[in-house]
């Protein structure tokens, strides 16, 4: 039986971490959707992140499971449950959260080392925010036609997004990611692991450390996020809808209307008949 006592994490333990992070972070993001955002002048003090939850769990347990759990939790609880699902754009959030948490989790070798935990927490948050900012800027650029031509728009977008990044990092980042993580990690270390039937992470455990492979993985993930966003917005040029129907003109549209109307009537009739048969 000794073969089973290795330090590696079993599949089920990963599932446990996934379920735990998903539930908690999901619940937390549900609140962030509801807490009013308020602005003082230009600065938006949005309580954006309960990111400290997956950060903490990612540092204590398997980073990838915690990262995926957090991203899924946000997707399911706050996007799907509240009907705030933004389509392909959600992929971006999913991936940036996953990468941010994953990086932070991998950076920590020993959860008892507070300096390490602090650096990892702020790095993970910064990575997540930065990726989000880049994608955001690109998004507006593609969504608004003649982006450059609109007076004041490009500047305002760069200014607000850049400002939001710094503000989020310094405000949300420190108050809602760094400090709570520093408070929670040492408190939970050694207490939460036995509840899940695991051994606490030590400097010797295999999960820690950022190796080239994980960096490449993160980069690929980020590229996917950007591509997803671009696909959601830049698709305009690929499928040139307007041109298509402008040329074919009214006749084609009339045809579509007629066809659809016939379909509606046909289905209604068939449905009636079917119902009569059943009755």
């Amino acid at each position: 039986m000794n073969a089973m006592q290795k330090n590696t994490i079993t599949q089920s333990q990963k599932l446990m971490i996934f379920v735990l992070t998903m539930s908690l972070y999901g619940l937390a993001t549900l609140f962030t959707e509801l807490i009013p955002k308020f602005q003082v002048g230009l600065v938006e003090f949005s309580i954006e992140y309960f990111l400290f939850i997956p950060l903490t769990l990612g540092m204590l347990f398997d980073p990838l499971s915690a990262a995926l759990g957090a991203a899924t939790g946000e997707l399911v609880f706050s996007e799907i449950m509240l009907g705030q699902f933004g389509g392909l754009g959600e992929l971006e959030k999913f991936l940036t959260v996953t990468i941010g948490v994953y990086i932070a989790g991998r950076l920590v070798k020993d959860p008892k080392n507070r300096v390490m935990v602090g650096i990892a927490a702020i790095t993970g948050t910064a990575a997540q925010l930065l990726m989000g900012t880049i994608v955001d800027i690109a998004k507006v650029q593609f969504a608004v036609e003649d982006f450059e031509a609109v007076a004041g728009l490009p500047e305002s977008v760069f200014a607000t997004e850049g400002f939001a990044f710094l503000n989020d990092l310094l405000f949300s980042g420190i108050f809602f990611c760094l400090l709570p993580t520093l408070y929670l990690v040492p408190k939970l270390y050694g207490k939460i692991e036995p509840l899940l039937g695991m051994a606490p992470r030590t400097a010797q455990s295999a999960v820690a450390g950022l190796n080239p492979k994980s960096v490449v993985l993160c980069l690929i993930g980020f590229l996917c996020a950007v591509t997803a966003e671009m696909a959601a917005t830049a698709g305009m040029s690929l499928i040139d809808w307007e041109a298509e129907w402008a040329e074919s003109g009214t006749a084609m549209a009339m045809g579509m209307v007629a066809a659809a109307a016939v379909a509606v009537i046909a289905i209604l009739v068939i449905k009636k008949n079917a119902e009569r048969k059943v009755a």
Partner: peptide, 9 residues
């Protein structure tokens, strides 16, 4: 025990 929770069996 022992498939899910490991240990000495």
């Amino acid at each position: 025990i022992p498939h899910f929770i490991t240990g000495d069996f």
